[in-house]
Design a protein around this nucleic acid. Structure first.
Lengths: 105, 105
DNA sequence: CTGTATCCTAGACGATACTG
DNA sequence: CAGTATCGTCTAGGATACAG
């Protein structure tokens, strides 16, 4: 969903652009628990390789996720949160509390 | 975008469900400035009636926006934020700051 | 194991016309 | 003015197959 309007709340829009994607916040959440391998992430979330790879590429491009390739055979790649990713997770917390209240009402 | 996973960060997911939609946060932002009529909103955002109406219905259904119909002729309808909507706007602020930092880097 | 390449579908969004 | 009704488009996401 590109082409977001820039009505003045630009910061939120920028953040939404980063978060947008069906699995992004789930990935952020999972990586918040600690480093995670591709396949592990895949199993936990229950998402196809193509989609997971895509979301990870975007998160990586936005600098919130770090990809580390160990260049081994068989392949071993680990994903983790960058400092920026950690900050994003924190910024998401109030929203999470708001949502939780919504659920319990 | 329904069918979000429930990996444990359920609150954020619930919130994302409410916010999801190209114009939702813009609407929230605009109404944060004060009460607003349908056409006014439409002009400010530059969105079609159909889409705006849809987004407003959903926000109303989620209890963050209040619709007041004055039953006049010609029609006069005003939209505003509920207490819950105000809280949502506040919960969005940290995310906005995170996004702003992202922009200025 | 960690991806990429194709193909396909649902649904969000937009353009336009119309109504009370 | 504040919508509803139709129709068309576009793309994110899913299924599947294949590759290094």
């Amino acid at each position: 969903m590109r082409n977001r309007p820039g009505t003045g709340h630009c910061g939120v829009d920028a953040a939404m652009g980063v978060i947008e994607g069906k699995w992004k916040v789930s990935i952020l959440w999972a990586l918040g628990e600690g480093v995670c391998r591709f396949g592990e992430l895949r199993r936990v979330l229950g998402v196809t390789e193509k989609v997971l790879a895509g979301q990870l590429r975007e998160l990586e491009g936005d600098g919130v996720v770090v990809r580390e390739d160990f260049g081994e055979v068989p392949p071993r790649v680990e994903y983790s949160l960058s400092a920026r990713g950690l900050a994003l997770n924190s910024a998401l917390r109030p929203l999470g509390e708001w949502g939780r209240e919504l659920l319990g009402s």
